[in-house]
Design a protein around this nucleic acid. Structure first.
Length: 280
DNA sequence: AGCCAGGACTGAG
DNA sequence: CTCAGTCATGGC
């Protein structure tokens, strides 16, 4: 068991970070979060400014949770109105996790046109079916399937993970990336708009999925994924009533309004989606 | 029971 | 370019 003490000027909230819907493979049981990263089971707990965990070294934990970023400065920069201010107050310490591009891409392809509990369930089935079993004493855990494992699988078997019409997209992207191991490096070297266009060449990857992958998998903190919730929030609190605005209008508005860390603003607003949207 | 969900694709205008 | 129809599934 390892531990570290967070400095006072470095806000971090483990619960918000793992429960806000950016990652889908962590589960909490009486205070302890358990997740699988690469081939390792990680258990972690926060008690005030104290972080305790097993399954990884400190450098990995700091990197994964972006503890090296000056979050106070980022939050100060996006804190431009009462709506986002309230979200920052409520979710302070939420950090955007550095996911691996492959897992992030597949996860958000699965995340189209569904809800978060279903996404978690489907990814869990996918790992159980195509990942490697990890012995950790108690219940079995499974690693995320490699491109190779998915590329060589039967589409029907993939579909059986409740994936529906997404199954052929997953098989295709797995084959493409298995044949092109340098895909992530190539995208990492491109400017935002070009990286986005490149990601959208994969079938099943549209604007929203591409923005999620850039934000959560490639550290493009200016990326603003616009899902139905973010669109609702922006229309209700930021855009003019009835303003005609398609995806890219809304995305660019948020990027211009919140600046280079607009992705953080997006995630804080998403975290507050149930409190700041009125249903009618 | 029916509506909705971290959308993408296709074809028509 | 916009717009509607369609896609497969489960949560609530």
């Amino acid at each position: 068991m390892l531990s570290l003490t967070l400095s006072a000027d470095q806000p971090f909230n483990l619960d918000k970070t793992l429960s806000c819907g950016q990652v889908f493979r962590w589960a909490e049981t009486n205070g302890w979060w358990t997740g699988v990263i690469r081939d390792r089971v990680i258990r972690i707990q926060q008690d005030g400014n104290h972080l305790s965990w097993s399954g990884a070294d400190e450098a990995f934990i700091r990197h994964y949770f972006s503890l090296d970023l000056d979050l106070s400065r980022i939050l100060a920069e996006i804190d431009c109105d009462p709506v986002i201010h309230r979200a920052i107050y409520a979710c302070r310490g939420l950090r955007i996790i550095r996911q691996t591009p492959w897992e992030c891409l597949v996860s958000y392809m699965i995340a189209t046109f569904t809800n978060i509990p279903s996404i978690k369930r489907r990814i869990s089935l996918l790992c159980r079916e195509f990942g490697n079993k990890i012995d950790s004493g108690g219940e079995p855990y499974f690693s995320f399937p490699t491109p190779e494992a998915l590329a060589g699988s039967d589409e029907k078997q993939v579909r059986a993970c409740s994936l529906g019409y997404r199954a052929p997209y997953l098989c295709q992207v797995a084959q493409a990336i298995h044949q092109d191991p340098g895909w992530a490096g190539a995208i990492r070297n491109l400017p935002y708009e070009e990286a986005r266009t490149e990601l959208m060449r994969y079938r099943g990857v549209g604007r929203k999925v591409a923005d999620c992958v850039l934000l959560f998998g490639f550290e493009r903190l200016e990326a603003v994924p616009v899902d139905v919730w973010i669109e609702r929030i922006l229309r209700q609190h930021y855009l003019k009533p009835g303003e005609k605005a398609n995806y890219d209008h809304i995305r660019r508005y948020a990027q211009g309004y919140f600046g280079p860390f607009a992705g953080y603003a997006q995630e804080y607003l998403f975290c507050m989606r149930n409190d700041i949207t009125k249903k009618e």
